[in-house]
């Protein structure tokens, strides 16, 4: 039987996600703030860990071999450890806890998550109209339908508008400092 927390994440179930926040955020917050992090870091790490779990749970090979909290804690611990390392807090070591030790390749996860966060935050910086249009576009709706749903006068205008919105999205992504950082890492 599938873990109910994993199910809530996979389905984006509001109540289930609310429960995850209520049950586990305080403990993760303690982990982060007791290890040099701030509230904002704790929120970032918690959110990123849930996305990592969503990604993992979406793969065919995924099998929850421990409790949900063990998985969440392990991921958060590694994400935070990695971030600390980047910040060059060289003297910092998070105490090892064999119980929560994760053997996953967190580097790859982290890089992917950072890139995805960049796309998401850029997307959110678009105006509502462009967000709506781009959602339809990314969902592969036909241009005729997009024009109709957006209330545009023609398909050619919908195409033009789609280009303008995407161009803006690309510009926002490229203007972000994280983009250069991630691009440099690729090369």
């Amino acid at each position: 039987m599938k873990d109910q927390n994993i199910k809530a994440i996979q389905e984006g179930d509001s109540k289930g996600l609310q429960q995850i926040y209520t049950d586990f955020l305080p403990r993760i917050r303690r982990l982060i703030t007791n290890n040099g992090g701030r509230e904002e870091d704790a929120q970032d790490i918690f959110q990123n860990a849930i996305i990592v779990i969503y990604e993992k749970a979406s793969s065919k090979d995924f099998k929850l071999t421990s409790g949900f909290y063990t998985l969440l804690y392990g991921i958060c611990r590694n994400l935070w450890g990695n971030r600390l390392q980047k910040k060059s807090f060289k003297e910092v070591t998070i105490p090892e806890d064999i119980k929560y030790k994760s053997d996953d390749n967190i580097e790859a996860d982290l890089e992917k998550i950072e890139e995805q966060n960049l796309f998401w935050s850029s997307f959110k910086n678009l105006g509502e109209d462009c967000q709506k249009l781009m959602r339809l576009f990314f969902d592969k709706e036909k241009m005729e339908k997009i024009a109709q749903m957006m209330g545009y006068s023609s398909v050619s205008y919908a195409k033009k508008r789609k280009f303008q919105c995407k161009e803006k999205l690309v510009a926002l992504v490229k203007a972000d400092d994280r983009f250069d950082e991630l691009s440099n890492r690729d090369h």
Partner: peptide
């Protein structure tokens, strides 16, 4: 820029 518009219509 239209990409910032909250809503847009003809």
């Amino acid at each position: 820029d239209i990409a910032q518009a909250t809503t847009s219509f003809s």
